[in-house]
Nucleic acid binder design. Structure first.
Lengths: 299, 299
DNA sequence: CTCTACATTTCAAAAAAACTGAACCTTTAT
DNA sequence: ATAAAGGTTCAGTTTTTTTGAAATGTAGAG
């Protein structure tokens, strides 16, 4: 019923006493007089019904109970401090949470260092990474399910209400597994020859918008997978062929696990873009807008 | 420099306002008058320099900053409450921490439910599970590295300063792997025949006391391993033979992965015991002393 | 549109709490 | 033995918190 007798003042007092070594020194550090500390401590001792100091000797010595309060109390004081500064941040335009929609063409792990850095600076601002593919990623932004998305300009629905900014170039390469028949003579295949093999395509995660397909698709021999990671793995396994973003498969191209097939059709490079809703000006959004760069594409 | 303006009173006020829905109702719940709440809130708003409520409408509405303080504050209030009650517990004879030494003959996982239950009841009392083998387990108790140990009476050094209590019977069975030569005719092997195979023994973790060996050992063909789990695995792999505690290998005996070999020597059943230092009367120690029972041996 | 019923704030006064400084023990150091 | 330092006590002072009555303001009913 009554209040918890533990006060932040007591926690601060215990901390100071432990750090400075005596009531007198602690009192000075807290800009108080020693008897004020005695008062604070005795009050809690009385209300809580336990001893916090053993006064049998010359110098007061903390009891195990006080030691527990001291140790856990430090964490609580830290939390309270963080909380106060976070509240100020939010009041000054930092959002309480930010939802970032990441298209499956990007490697999510490349964003982790940035998110980690942000989290260190702003421990109480929650960052949600949500995943989407193709039009589905834009849909998250339009619907308000994400505050910021990473996608490509190819898929930009070009409707009102949002703004974009480019942060890198993405070249798509037609690649097949090392042991795939198309890998043997890595040039000058005809359409018919290529169409002999299934194409792996990433399924659009959009629920409402018209699904978009990227590049040409043939009606026959399509295998759809939910994410770019699945597509890469499927092509690595030789299950099918298709365009893959170079930044996701550079290691595989270098090691020879995947082989680029040159086609005579031209594939204009697309741009990696971030997009956000017009008029949304949160500082956390700005923080990421300024920092998301080519390193998300593996530099 | 100055104090953090966030006070526990504010956190409690925000919580009540959120739960009851209005300053007036919250004030009543806190046995105060509404203007007192206004005062508490305004004071923090002024000190922190931010608004906690939007007063443009009829009813005061929390700002996002206040919402953050509310949500995180609830956790802090919970911590403070736990801390107060834990401090009282410790002052009334509950130890701040308890170190339990577990001999390797026991399956550590069988203790987890008990430790979990204890931890729910006493969130701020730290339980350390430390592992030892043979005399080493007793040494932890004698040295003061453990407050309570689980071992067997066979290894009891029978010196002054501690007390024991039995909590179950442990039968040791001479077992070999399914495919081991000794498994084929599971009876009446001569000593010489058995001595043809290596014996797996658990190494004593003792640093100072005289290492004890359990049962007979032959000087030749010994393979020592650090824990009972290693010994079981070694015998399962057919690497050697030896006595194993039935409660650790019941599943393997049932499935036939291990086969009991009957020997004509008699092996008196030993007792599983707990032991603690005489005169140590902490309540956490008592809690475990009362509850450790045959379920540690798999019922 | 006016009136009523809340919901909250303002303000001065009162109560409670926290703090101070001087006096006083007690223990440690010299 | 004496000085120095740590801690407490206590009466008085200052500061903070609470109160209750009046004021303000808004939503909703009639």
């Amino acid at each position: 019923m009554a209040h918890n007798p533990l006060s932040l003042d007591l926690l601060r007092a215990l901390d100071a006493i432990d750090q400075r070594g005596s009531f007198a020194a602690a009192a000075e550090a807290l800009h108080k007089v020693p008897s004020a500390l005695t008062y604070t401590v005795q009050k809690v001792e009385q209300d809580l019904g336990i001893d916090l100091f053993d006064r049998s000797g010359h110098r007061a010595k903390m009891t195990p109970a006080a030691r527990l309060i001291l140790e856990e109390g430090r964490g609580i004081l830290r939390d309270i401090d963080n909380l106060a500064s976070s509240a100020k941040k939010i009041a000054s335009g930092w959002e309480p949470e930010l939802r970032i929609g990441v298209d499956t063409v990007f490697e999510p792990a490349r964003l982790y260092p940035l998110v980690h850095e942000f989290n260190e600076e702003h421990p109480y601002i929650k960052v949600h990474l949500v995943h989407g593919s193709l039009s589905g990623t834009w849909e998250m932004l339009i619907n308000g399910d994400a505050d910021l998305i990473l996608s490509t300009d190819l898929l930009d629905p070009k409707i009102d209400g949002y703004e974009t900014s480019r942060f890198g170039e993405m070249s798509m390469v037609f690649a097949v597994a090392k042991n795939h028949p198309l890998a043997s003579n890595a040039c000058d295949w005809t359409h018919e020859q290529i169409e002999a093999y299934p194409t792996i395509v990433v399924r659009d995660s959009s629920k409402l918008m018209a699904p978009r397909t990227i590049g040409w698709t043939r009606q026959n021999k399509l295998i759809t997978v939910p994410t770019m990671r699945d597509k890469i793995e499927a092509q690595l396994a030789g299950l099918g062929v298709g365009y893959l973003p170079r930044h996701r498969i550079q290691a595989e191209l270098d090691s020879g696990a995947l082989v680029q097939v040159k086609l005579n059709e031209t594939n204009p490079p697309s741009e990696a873009v971030i997009a956000w809703r017009t008029g949304v000006t949160g500082k956390a959004l700005g923080w990421f807008r300024e920092r998301i760069g080519a390193e998300v594409l593996g530099v």
